[in-house]
């Protein structure tokens, strides 16, 4: 499996080359185009209940598609729904990442994806829902963001504060607490509830440069209200 980002910037696409028999897991609806040798299987990862819980709790769109080069080598073109960057990461078998539900675009077959229940406080205040994805294994992982993606590198015990709606993915070696932003913070953060995550290293945190919720609010004012 080989992957390459096309048109880097706000409207990128990713091309994934598959050897004969090889497959990838992709967010459903991510496929733009493919070779005729590639078949789409709508597989319910984690069984029916797993898929159902994901559907109910992480957003209805979250079903995986398996794109399999079953009739010879081929390629697929994948794109996220929202404008924003794509990053390709190579998992080394030890690093694990937690990914917010909209952040996942695709993963190699050797990458394992499981829904993970968060602690209640994180689920209530974190804005990522009660389920997030825990991604481990070895191989290619493709993430996407709303806006540009920015990587924050944390040394052991180094702290950093992130508005929760800007989170994309973070290493499992980090830890974080949800905090109510102090009054002074509220103005500087765009999060309406004023909740932020205090991350502690070591590890990396990927954040997106735009807040989907705020963008939705902004765009709503231009939608004419029908009477």
């Amino acid at each position: 499996m080989k992957s390459e980002i096309l048109y880097p910037g706000a409207f990128p696409m990713v091309r994934v080359e598959l050897a004969a028999g090889e497959h990838i897991k992709a967010e459903s609806g991510a496929m733009v185009a493919s070779s005729p040798t590639v078949d789409i299987e709508s597989k319910m990862e984690g069984g029916f209940l797993g898929a159902l819980s994901r559907k109910l709790l992480t957003g209805e769109k979250f079903f995986f598609q398996t794109l399999r080069a079953s009739r010879g080598p081929g390629e697929v073109l994948l794109a996220p729904t929202v404008p924003g960057e794509i990053v390709i990461m190579e998992l080394d078998g030890v690093n694990e990442y937690l990914v917010q539900k909209d952040g996942f675009l695709a993963g190699a077959e050797s990458v394992s994806i499981e829904s993970k229940m968060q602690s209640l406080s994180r689920g209530l205040m974190g804005g990522e829902g009660f389920f997030i994805l825990r991604i481990s294994g070895k191989g290619t992982l493709i993430l996407n963001s709303f806006g540009a993606i920015h990587k924050i590198e944390l040394k052991p015990d180094q702290e950093y504060i992130v508005d929760n709606s800007h989170l994309v993915a973070w290493s499992a070696t980090t830890s974080y607490n949800i905090e109510k932003a102090a009054s002074g913070w509220v103005a500087s953060f765009t999060s309406g509830e004023g909740f932020v995550c205090r991350f502690r290293g070591p590890g990396v945190v990927y954040i997106q440069s735009r807040n989907p919720g705020s963008f939705g609010n902004w765009i709503r004012q231009f939608i004419p209200v029908s009477e």
Binding site: D92, G93, L154, K155, S171, T173, G203
Partner: peptide, 19 residues
């Protein structure tokens, strides 16, 4: 090479060096 841990240090990447 089958790493079983992550090592952090000033010369390693922020995501840790598999070891």
């Amino acid at each position: 090479f089958h790493p079983n841990a992550l090592c952090f240090g000033h010369e390693f990447p922020a995501s840790g060096a598999p070891c």
